[in-house]
Design a protein around this nucleic acid. Structure first.
Length: 425
RNA sequence: GUGGGCGUAGCUCAGUUGGUUAGAGCAUCUGGUUGUGGCCCAGAAGGUCGUGGGUUCAAAUCCCAUCGCUCACCCCA
């Protein structure tokens, strides 16, 4: 009767020491990139009032209507593990009046999101994202800056085979025009459409463009194109974004079917995909959301942002290269004598406080076992204290690459080690 | 929610048409003379063959169920 093991929740994963160094690498790159672009970190709680997402992301979206982890707490509050982070960031922006401090607010985050979908390659129930929100400017330079951050980070992380897909879904007026045209076009085809598409015909016809059903894609080939229905202002904005991207040397392809599943988007939408990622090939998605701040109770404030999926970045990187972690330590302190242990601990901590990475044996194992361990950890030097050394107050310092060994007094050990140059590999 | 594939040691996998003590490599541990790592050699430890039923003299192997993992649809990071 073995006790049943408790496993991690489906669609969630432990990040073990073998992998965590990769995550740190990405996080460091992101943070440094954001610093250079002048974005400051914001951290928001893992859960929020359910209403925030219902209002912000949109009641009709799949995310809100069927994928959220929602629950009622002991006080009767309706709460939800955040399924995306933009709504939380804007909530915080409004709650703390960040817009009053300066007319332009540039924020970034490293966070997690939760959605109860069926897991598959590149899609998990808990996933990690990094992203930015640039709040306050309606101008195309902001769009270009945000896109260039997304593109730049992915490039800097070492990804190739990237494709930036770009579209404009226009403002409210453009979409009203287009919706009318699209519905007129689709009406005669209605009987041939799938049930979901027929439902969307009434609730959200633009989402029909997202279909992956072959015969629907065929029908939609002749559908009116949204960018043809943009108001002059929206068209001008879109042109400016494209020109800026060209100036910045960022290649893109136009994709008029790029609608995206969150209701708050306006004007510019974009996605960066990576080939060789399987079905979930979007590394990053984002766009402008000029009405969200107002929807959440603030005054009309234009904004744009993106979110990138860290798990997918990792997947894409692995198919690119497979580097091994650069794990190595400076010193391994071998102790063979029971009475010497306190002294060895003291010297070890002394060296650690000076910045050296030092390991010691915690299992009271044999000399042979300890040296084997030192070797496995790729220690540069082994320090050995046995009965003789303890009595003489010395340490054997052994270079593990050359096997040379030297006796050094306790008093001069720190000096001796400090003089060694560990940094020249 | 719908479909496909897969579940044998920590990891990667063998396992003949059901047949007796279920194997290998890597990793781990201990030794190869008394206090010196890597390479090599020897040995050890580690598995209720995902779980539960069924068929059979006999099941890792066949059947059913269940759970888990995985991929795709859908959706999106």
């Amino acid at each position: 009767m073995a006790k049943p093991l408790i496993r991690s929740i489906k669609g969630t994963h432990d990040i073990l020491p073998d992998q965590s160094w990769r995550w740190q690498q990405i996080e460091n790159t992101v943070r440094d990139f954001m610093r250079r672009f002048g974005y400051r970190e914001i951290r928001t709680p893992v859960f929020e009032r359910t209403e925030l997402f219902a209002r912000g992301v949109g009641q009709e979206t799949d995310i809100v209507s069927k994928e959220m982890y929602s629950f009622v707490d002991k006080s009767g509050n309706n709460l939800t593990l955040k399924p995306e982070v933009t709504a939380s960031v804007i909530r915080a922006y409004l709650q703390h009046n960040l817009g009053r401090q300066s007319p332009m607010t540039k924020l970034y985050y490293l966070d997690r999101a939760f959605r109860q979908e069926r897991p598959q390659a590149g899609r998990y129930r808990q996933h990690h994202q990094f992203g930015v929100e640039a709040i306050g400017s309606p101008h195309p330079e902001t769009d270009a800056e945000v896109i260039s951050i997304a593109y730049g980070i992915l490039k800097e992380l070492g990804l190739s085979e990237l494709e930036l897909r770009l579209n404009s879904i226009g403002s409210q007026n453009s979409r009203t025009n287009y919706r009318r045209a699209l519905k007129a076009f689709l009406k005669p085809h209605l009987p041939k459409l799938t049930e979901t598409s027929r439902r969307r015909f009434d609730t959200n016809p633009l989402r029909i463009l997202d279909t992956k059903v072959p015969h629907e894609i065929e029908i939609l080939k002749d559908a009116p194109i949204l960018t043809d229905y943009l108001t002059p202002e929206d068209a001008e904005h879109f042109e400016a974004v494209k020109t800026l991207l060209q100036t910045l040397g960022i290649p893109f392809v136009l994709d008029s079917s790029l609608v995206r599943g969150l209701d708050y988007y306006t004007r510019t939408t974009f996605e960066i995909t990576s080939s060789g990622l399987g079905a979930q090939n979007a590394l990053c998605g984002g766009g402008r959301y000029d009405n969200l701040v107002e929807t959440l109770g603030g005054k009309q404030t234009p904004a744009i942002g993106f979110a990138a999926g860290m798990e997918r970045v990792l997947l894409a990187l692995e198919s690119d290269t497979d580097k091994t972690p650069p794990e190595t330590i400076d010193l391994y302190f071998v102790c063979l004598d029971e009475y010497a242990r306190p002294t060895v601990m003291k010297l070890t901590n002394k060296l650690r406080s000076l910045g050296f990475s030092v390991e010691t044996d915690l299992l009271r194992r044999s000399l042979k076992a300890q040296l084997r361990e030192a070797n496995r950890l790729h220690a540069r030097m082994a320090l050995i204290v046995g009965e003789t050394e303890f009595q003489n107050q010395t340490v054997q310092v052994k270079d593990l690459t050359t096997a040379e060994q030297k006796s050094v007094n306790w008093d001069s050990l720190v000096d001796y080690i400090s003089r060694l140059n560990f940094n020249s590999e």
